[in-house]
Amino acid sequence: MAAKLNGAGWTRRLALLAILAGGAWTWISRPQAPQAGADAPAARVGAFAPDFTLPALEDGRPLRLSDFRGRAVVINFWATWCPPCRVEMPALQQAQRDMPDVVVLGVNQQESADNVSRFMREQGLDFPIALDTAGEVNRLYRVRALPTTCFVDRSGVIRDIVYGGPLTRALIESKVSGLR
């Protein structure tokens, strides 16, 4: 024999209470201003990608992320000592070649320009590389593992972050197709 839950119609009264109390709290707690900090630049999906300026490997000129606004950007955090980073480099190179409207930007993590140049030459890679020698952008983007890849759309909003690798050309292309 099942217990009687509704001896005095209390679930109906509870529902009424939920509507009144819940509705009141929903109204009281509504944001009074644009939701504080929700649209601030941050290294998370849905937020504007934090801007940064780093020297380019090629010629040392400053590379600024916001200069690429209006184009989709793939930001790849990498290092030459990181095996999956090395494996995915040809896929990034091919993505840059196949999709000229997309910027593939490698952000090398705290290695010397000579070391990185040698690696790029040996691998036949020529997409833009920024040198994060002091790890400043690493901290800004809270990079916890290499490789980490951020997919930024044309308005500068991060649409996806892929932790780890190696990325395949197909995966890069599928992620980029949502950015253009």
Binding site: A2, K4, L5, N6, G9, T11, R12, L14, A15, L16, A18, I19, G22, G23, W25, T26, W27, S29, R30, P31
Partner: peptide
Amino acid sequence: MRVTQLAGVVVCATALLMIERLT
């Protein structure tokens, strides 16, 4: 108002009323 709060009120009240019907 926040969409999830509004949905929560509706779901909560509906679930409670369904309990009454079940009983």
